[in-house]
Amino acid sequence: MKKVVAIKEYCVACGLCEVYCATVHSRYPDSVLKAFKLSPQKPVSRVFLEKSEQWSGGIQCRHCKDAPCIAACITGAMYRNRDGIVLLDEERCVQCSTCVIACPYGLIKESDMGGRKVLLKCDLCYQLAESPTCVTYCPNEALIWVEEGETL
């Protein structure tokens, strides 16, 4: 399956991946301005810009083959779809955060949605026809969408 890979040599640490991820998962997926100005809560990104002195990169759920979050989920809300993408069924989720603890990469985040806790993770923008939004909008092509094991 195709995955998003961060190329740390070309990441400019701008954070646009976060801005566009938050937008596309908001009530106004087509407008950054409306997503941030009109959403009742500040839109939250599912990709995380990691920065250090030496490198930076946009990191999101790895959609592991043996996903510990699926095994750990107490309600079966975390599941894998036919394309291999690990998704969270928000209807079944009881916000117990076991998946947050189970994720070896720390890429499932708790977020406060106006007093209501929600768990957010990357869904690889599976509803879009094109590449994930973070890849589409990465200004320096430092996030790429490639088959697993494909050489860069």
Binding site: V12, C14, G15, L16, E18, V19, V32, L33, F36, K37
Partner: peptide, 9 residues
Amino acid sequence: IECQVCVNQ
């Protein structure tokens, strides 16, 4: 939108 992309750049 206070996204701080300008600050980062």
